[in-house]
Amino acid sequence: MPLILPLLLAVVLFCIGVYGVLARRNVITLLMSFELMLNAVNLNLVAFDAWRINDATGQTLAVFVITLAAAEIGLGLAIVLLLFRGHGHVDADAARDLAEQDELVEQEKAT
């Protein structure tokens, strides 16, 4: 089996994830896209492990990554819920309370 096959799949998955991160609005969908990206990583790790070394280091790291992803998702969803409580929505691009406040500049100029 050619090594290139899983690698290309990983690349495509990763880029689909990137697309999702940039194109989707709901934070939960963003999290899903991140999962795709992390899976691309795992695919790479497993494929490389199988290709050359075969000492299961890659697989171990893949397992770590899965765990890590779980931790991230857990905290992430907590943050999402918090966001929802505060804002009433979970759209990433609509939470803009913290943007630069232009009226402050005007206020400063006035004094």
């Binding site: 991160v21 940039l22 609005r25 990433a92 691009d93 939470a95 943007a99 630069e100 232009d102 500049v105």
Partner: peptide, 17 residues
Amino acid sequence: FRKLQTGNVQTYLAAAV
């Protein structure tokens, strides 16, 4: 740079990517 700081996290992500 202030203008770029829109508060929209996705533009931040896009810029980063």
